[in-house]
Amino acid sequence: MSDVVVTTVDWQAGKALRDIRQRVFIDEQQVPEDLEWDAQDEEATHFLLLRAGHPVGTGRLLKDGHIGRIAILPQHRGLGLGERLMRAIMAHAIAKGMRTLLLSAQTHAVPFYQRLGFEVCSDIYLDAGIEHQDMRWSNDTQESDHLPHIEFVSPGRFTIHNPDEEPPAKPDYSDPDMIPITEQNAQEQLIELLDGCLQSVRIFAPEQALWLFNRKAILQACERLIARNPKARIQVLLQEVSNDFLSGHTLLSLARRFPSLCQVRKQHPDLPRQSYAQAMIDQQGFLMLPIARQREGFVRQTSRDQVKRWSDTFDERWNSSQTDPAIRSFLL
């Protein structure tokens, strides 16, 4: 989404900030006006998210690391803009030397903030009649490849949170349709999915799980699919093109041999990085590694709803993706 920009805005001149908060908090959420507007707005750093030049989202950061008033206009939700806005605020906070961020999340949005590294640090409480929980982000507890760690307690009690994408599901071992996987059985389970594939394979961020995807047996399973169906389509979307991914039994070698059937692209550099890797087979097979480098996750042979949800996210990323120079060089 190259048409998306997040910028800081002066509160006194920020009419667009106030308009968005009026529409989201007061009109939509029914937050009383005397609670929405507070003295902390004068000292806060305010952020405005613009899409194609139009203001569609806002948030604020207090000097003590509290993030609040996160809002995206209704017609622009579900596009990843909330995450884009939060990551910009977090990056700004880290640049200012803040190592802990706090916020007050509506309970339905807790998973969204957990994906960004926040942890719940309170029981459920009511704020303006809406259930909330305090959450904290600490730079000291994040992995080195995550975004700057944030700890946040919402400066305003009526922040609305608009999760844009369902976070990677945590395995529920009571679910009989879910098969837990580790490094020991992941290859076997993925091959079973591929051998049952009829036409389409979508793979996201395999460079984060070379231990699984850069395996000769996986390439052979893809080759068997192509042999079964000369109209098969294999899409591989990378977040980064690493030297390790370019060597060994790589999916790029498959794309070189079958360029009309297997495509490898890199996601747009403006899109945020994710820690998970996944494979979606046809309309129902699903493999997820929530934190790919931990080498564990789950497989579902039949999960139409989950595949539909994640396929939509994949397709959005794919439509804005690029052919990286390193990929082009490899394919020539």
Rank of each mutant, 00 (worst) to 15 (best):
Q220G: 00
T107M: 03
P269F: 08
I281K: 07
R84S: 05
A279N: 09
T58A: 15
L289V: 10
H268E: 04
Q189D: 03
I203W: 10
A91Q: 13
E131A: 09
P74N: 06
H146P: 00
Q301H: 15
L35D: 12
F245Q: 13
R304F: 12
F314D: 07
T58K: 01
I226S: 04
I26A: 07
N243T: 02
G68F: 05
F314R: 07
Q189T: 04
N139Y: 04
S144F: 02
D282F: 01
R328Q: 14
I94D: 13
L271R: 14
I26P: 05
H161N: 15
R256V: 04
I234A: 11
G129H: 05
A39Q: 13
R115Y: 07
R256P: 01
W137Q: 08
C262A: 15
L101W: 03
L246M: 15
P148C: 02
F152L: 15
L49W: 07
M178W: 11
L194F: 15
S321T: 08
P55Q: 02
L73N: 07
Q142N: 04
L103S: 13
I327S: 06
A71T: 11
R69P: 06
W310P: 00
P206K: 01
P168Q: 11
T58S: 14
Q184F: 03
V201H: 08
G53H: 08
I281C: 13
Q12M: 05
Q263C: 09
L194D: 09
I226Y: 06
A91E: 14
L287S: 09
G97N: 09
R300H: 10
E165S: 12
L271N: 13
E119I: 05
R136I: 14
G297P: 10
A169E: 12
M90E: 00
I130N: 06
I70Y: 00
L85M: 15
R69G: 01
F298P: 02
D315C: 06
F25G: 05
T159L: 00
L61V: 05
A186K: 11
P167R: 09
G285H: 01
R21I: 00
A227S: 02
H146W: 06
S242P: 04
A221W: 05
L17V: 10
L332F: 10
G59E: 01
S321C: 12
E188N: 08
S321E: 07
L73I: 08
V56P: 08
I281L: 13
I70Q: 02
D195C: 09
S321Y: 10
T7L: 07
R51K: 15
P176Q: 04
T182V: 03
R21V: 00
L61C: 04
E188F: 06
A209G: 08
N185M: 01
T107W: 04
E83L: 10
L212K: 09
